[in-house]
Design a protein around this nucleic acid. Structure first.
Lengths: 186, 186
DNA sequence: TACTTGATGTCATCGAGTGACATCGGAGGT
DNA sequence: ACCTCCGATGTCACTCGATGACATCAAGTA
């Protein structure tokens, strides 16, 4: 056993999530979070670059999986088909975490600063998608448009999922949203 | 003539834009901006809620015009047609400011914090579009998807315009991007 | 034992952002 | 012409987010 309790980052994440939900983001200081996690504020900033990032720890993982799925799609798949595969890969990651996702979304939705951070994560996904599509040989302009559109679908589907019926399957919602899109733009 | 030079907000906007371009966003303090504008830092925060907002002064105007255009679209226009009208209204606003738009975009693109702020402005547009579409009688789910897609097109088109040939017409680029979208999702 | 490593604590400091109060020129009323 | 109120700004003090420099100490290793 080390000199301190293990998994300080995990404790900080939980403390932050709880406090943001209880007192709001603005009403919570980094010192509050650190106290609850049993460390100092300085340690908080060694684990997370800022007060927002503590809620977005899993985002690299999500991006990596989606991009891998996109890259691994059949060579002859059309852009939007490859995007679909990536969206379904994301659905797997969230499938058994609907409750946690809901609570997290509630906190984020309530705080403009956190929404900003979420948007930039989405933008990072767009960039990664664009790049992956170009690697597949998709024309640059088409790639960025497909990427942007794909993330729009992701956002809408996710929103539908967390606000919809409890037993809904995220993958189904993704497919349904994609179908709505082609109808809309027909 | 008043006790102070008039249009402090305007001077602050210009000073901020110039300094962010010269020294970067992080390398510029609010005190720097205020000094150049001939006021105190406290005054900066009376005009802008934070250090980022100074670059987004015109965004309410943009949103108002686009929503008005969307609301004013013919009653029988399909959702994406109404969206198109709104995008063309935005194009008018930027038509003669391509150079300024380019410089501003360059600064924003170089700074994650500013990109975050830009994204939330776009999100605000999505919300406003969604609401306006629902007012037109569009089904809620369709409305949010159309809004999200419309803003995606706006973003892509704007990007194409500022990076493309100097004499390109933003309205044409918007139409072209929309055409690309329907082809993509066909 | 002695040395190294890594995670944390401590201390000092800068900059963003805010509340409270002071200042003073100008507009409008008398 | 005088007075009063108002609004934009200045001044001061303070909290909090964020970072650099240095100290500490348990555990692993030679």
């Amino acid at each position: 056993m080390g000199r301190w309790e293990p998994d300080a980052a995990g404790r900080l994440r939980e403390a932050a999530m709880a406090l943001y939900a209880e007192q709001g983001f603005d009403g919570t200081t980094v010192a509050d979070i650190a106290d609850r996690a049993g460390v100092t504020a300085r340690t908080f900033f060694r684990h997370f670059v800022d007060k927002r990032e503590v809620l977005f720890a899993g985002s690299e993982e999500l991006q990596r999986r989606m991009v891998d799925a996109l890259t691994g799609a059949p060579r002859d798949a059309e852009p939007m088909d490859a995007i679909t595969i990536a969206l379904l890969a994301a659905a797997e990651l969230f499938a058994d975490r609907r409750d946690h996702s809901r609570r997290r979304q509630a906190v984020i939705a309530a705080t403009p600063e956190l929404r900003e951070r979420e948007f930039i994560k989405m933008a990072s996904l767009v960039t990664a998608f664009t790049e992956a599509l170009r690697q597949r040989g998709v024309e640059p302009d088409t790639a960025s448009l497909a990427a942007e559109t794909g993330i729009a679908v992701f956002r809408v589907a996710f929103e539908r999922w967390v606000t919809g019926p409890e037993d809904a399957d995220l993958a189904d919602v993704m497919r349904g949203t994609l179908a709505d899109l082609s109808e809309l733009t027909a």
